[in-house]
Amino acid sequence: MERFDRRLHVRVSASDIERAQTLAGTLDITTSALVRLLLQLPAKDVAARRHVVLDLACANRLYRELNQWGYQQNQAAHALNRIAYYLRREAMDASDVLEELASVERQLERLRERADEIAVPVRKVAESRLLFL
């Protein structure tokens, strides 16, 4: 018999414990053996149940991309506020306003393009059960 000298501590709900004990009892194994068995499931089997596994590198890439979206939105809002500031002080004429609005539109279009690239994959992740490594 293999000796297991490491421990894995997890926080679960009462219903999770009940399901684990029921499944372990059905399989005639301990809950520890059940967890070890589940940890060996192939990734394709987990993916078929619409689970998403995120490692630290993937989570960081998602964070950086979302941070970039926020930066672009902030830049667009800053440009619009700048336009409003100068319009209130009558320091801009129509051509200046149109030029600044075109700049804001370009920034927002770049944001839309980048958002469209990953919107569907991010939506799929958001709708899935997440497993973090």
Rank of each mutant, 00 (worst) to 15 (best):
Q73Y: 03
K44Q: 14
E117F: 10
N60D: 13
V46L: 10
T31K: 06
L41I: 07
L27C: 02
R36I: 03
Q75C: 02
A91N: 02
E90V: 04
Y63S: 13
Q107W: 02
E105D: 12
E117I: 11
D96F: 03
A47G: 05
A43N: 10
L111N: 06
L38R: 08
C58M: 15
D28V: 05
V52C: 04
I83V: 08
R36W: 02
L39M: 11
G25K: 01
V35R: 06
R112T: 12
A20H: 02
P121Q: 05
K44R: 15
A77Y: 03
T22I: 06
S95K: 12
N81D: 12
T30F: 01
G25Y: 00
E99K: 12
S32M: 04
I17R: 15
D16V: 11
A79L: 15
A94F: 02
A115W: 13
T30A: 05
I17S: 11
L39C: 11
E117W: 11
Q68G: 05
A84T: 12
E105Y: 03
R110L: 09
E113D: 08
Y86N: 09
V120M: 09
S103A: 14
R36Y: 02
V52Q: 05
D116P: 01
L56R: 14
N67E: 12
R82F: 09
Q21N: 06
I118R: 14
E109P: 00
Q68N: 09
A43P: 03
A59M: 11
Y85E: 13
L56E: 11
Q40D: 09
R82T: 15
L98W: 05
R82W: 09
L108N: 05
V52N: 01
I118W: 13
Q73N: 09
R19S: 08
Y63W: 13
K44P: 06
L80I: 12
D28P: 00
G25W: 00
Y86T: 11
L37S: 13
D116L: 15
D16Q: 13
R110A: 10
R82A: 13
A76E: 01
Q40P: 00
A76Y: 00
R110G: 03
T31A: 08
E109D: 12
R112H: 10
Y63V: 15
A102Q: 12
L27V: 01
N74E: 06
E90G: 10
R106L: 09
M92S: 07
R61D: 14
R123S: 12
Q73D: 06
I83G: 00
A119Q: 14
V46M: 03
A48S: 10
A24E: 02
A33E: 15
D96P: 00
A20D: 00
R50C: 01
I29Q: 04
L56S: 11
A24H: 01
E113L: 13
D16G: 05
D45H: 12
D28A: 12
